[in-house]
Deep mutational scan, measured.
Amino acid sequence: GATAVSEWTEYKTADGKTLYYNNRTLESTWEKPQELK
């Protein structure tokens, strides 16, 4: 079967924080998503 690919993209901001963006739900979060833990 196909492996579930994470929908989350990780961005590094200018101040060194990490922003997570979900390509499916168009949601963005500063918290690390469950799927990435």
Rank of each mutant, 00 (worst) to 15 (best):
G1E: 11
G1K: 14
G1N: 13
G1Y: 13
G1F: 12
G1L: 13
G1A: 13
G1W: 09
G1Q: 13
A2M: 13
A2N: 12
A2F: 12
A2S: 14
A2R: 11
A2H: 11
A2I: 14
A2W: 06
A2E: 13
A2T: 14
T3M: 13
T3N: 12
T3S: 15
T3I: 12
T3Y: 06
T3R: 12
T3V: 15
T3D: 12
T3Q: 12
T3E: 11
A4S: 12
A4Q: 11
A4M: 13
A4W: 07
A4T: 14
A4R: 12
V5T: 13
V5C: 15
V5A: 14
V5R: 11
V5M: 14
V5Q: 11
V5H: 14
V5Y: 13
V5K: 14
S6P: 12
S6A: 13
S6I: 08
S6V: 08
S6G: 11
S6R: 07
S6Q: 13
S6T: 10
S6W: 08
E7N: 06
E7T: 05
E7Q: 06
E7K: 03
E7D: 13
E7A: 06
E7G: 06
E7M: 05
W8F: 01
W8I: 02
W8P: 01
W8M: 01
W8V: 01
W8N: 01
W8T: 01
W8H: 00
W8Y: 02
W8Q: 00
T9I: 14
T9M: 11
T9L: 10
T9R: 08
T9V: 14
T9F: 10
T9Y: 10
E10N: 01
E10I: 09
E10S: 06
E10R: 02
E10C: 15
E10A: 06
E10L: 05
E10Y: 04
E10V: 08
E10Q: 07
E10W: 08
Y11H: 09
Y11F: 14
Y11N: 04
Y11E: 04
Y11Q: 07
Y11K: 09
Y11I: 15
K12A: 08
K12P: 07
K12Q: 11
K12R: 12
K12F: 09
K12H: 11
K12E: 10
K12D: 04
K12I: 13
K12C: 12
K12N: 07
K12L: 13
K12Y: 10
K12T: 14
T13A: 08
T13K: 03
T13Y: 10
T13I: 04
T13P: 01
T13G: 09
T13R: 03
T13W: 06
T13Q: 10
T13S: 08
A14W: 05
A14F: 04
A14V: 10
A14P: 13
A14K: 12
A14I: 10
A14R: 08
A14G: 07
A14D: 09
A14Q: 10
D15E: 08
D15W: 04
D15V: 02
D15S: 09
D15H: 04
D15G: 06
D15I: 03
D15P: 00
D15K: 03
G16N: 04
G16S: 01
G16H: 02
G16F: 00
G16V: 00
G16L: 00
G16M: 01
G16P: 00
G16T: 00
G16I: 00
K17T: 08
K17L: 07
K17P: 00
K17S: 06
K17D: 07
K17I: 03
T18K: 05
T18R: 03
T18S: 07
T18Y: 08
T18M: 04
T18P: 04
T18H: 04
T18D: 04
T18L: 09
T18G: 01
T18N: 05
T18W: 05
T18V: 12
L19I: 14
L19K: 08
L19Q: 05
L19P: 01
L19R: 06
L19W: 15
L19F: 15
Y20G: 02
Y20Q: 02
Y20K: 00
Y20R: 01
Y20F: 05
Y20I: 00
Y20V: 00
Y20A: 00
Y21A: 02
Y21S: 02
Y21C: 14
Y21M: 08
Y21V: 15
Y21E: 05
Y21G: 01
Y21L: 08
N22I: 00
N22G: 01
N22D: 03
N22R: 00
N22P: 02
N22V: 00
N22S: 01
N22Q: 01
N22H: 03
N22K: 00
N22A: 00
N22E: 03
N22L: 01
N23L: 09
N23H: 12
N23T: 15
N23P: 06
N23V: 14
N23E: 11
N23K: 11
R24E: 09
R24W: 08
R24F: 13
R24A: 12
R24M: 14
T25D: 02
T25W: 01
T25A: 01
T25Y: 03
T25Q: 01
T25R: 00
T25F: 01
T25E: 02
T25N: 02
T25H: 01
L26H: 15
L26Y: 11
L26Q: 15
L26A: 11
L26N: 14
L26D: 09
L26T: 09
L26P: 01
L26E: 11
E27N: 03
E27C: 15
E27M: 04
E27A: 04
E27Y: 02
E27T: 05
E27F: 02
E27W: 00
E27I: 05
E27S: 03
E27R: 03
S28L: 15
S28Y: 15
S28E: 11
S28R: 09
S28M: 15
S28I: 15
S28P: 02
S28G: 05
S28H: 11
S28W: 15
S28T: 14
T29A: 06
T29P: 02
T29M: 06
T29Q: 11
T29R: 10
T29N: 04
T29E: 02
T29K: 06
W30Y: 15
W30R: 05
W30P: 08
W30V: 07
W30S: 12
W30N: 09
W30E: 13
W30C: 12
E31T: 07
E31V: 09
E31Y: 04
E31L: 06
E31Q: 06
E31M: 04
E31K: 04
E31P: 02
E31R: 04
E31G: 03
E31S: 05
K32S: 04
K32H: 03
K32A: 08
K32L: 09
K32R: 10
K32I: 10
K32G: 02
K32V: 11
K32E: 09
K32W: 03
K32N: 06
K32F: 04
P33Y: 03
P33A: 01
P33M: 02
P33K: 01
Q34N: 14
Q34T: 14
Q34V: 12
Q34S: 11
Q34Y: 09
Q34P: 15
Q34D: 15
Q34I: 14
Q34A: 15
Q34G: 09
E35G: 09
E35Q: 07
E35N: 10
E35S: 09
E35W: 05
E35D: 11
E35R: 03
E35F: 08
E35P: 04
E35K: 05
L36I: 09
L36A: 07
L36C: 06
L36E: 08
L36R: 06
L36P: 07
L36Y: 10
L36D: 07
K37H: 12
K37M: 15
K37Y: 11
K37N: 14
K37G: 14
K37F: 13
K37R: 12
K37D: 15
K37Q: 14
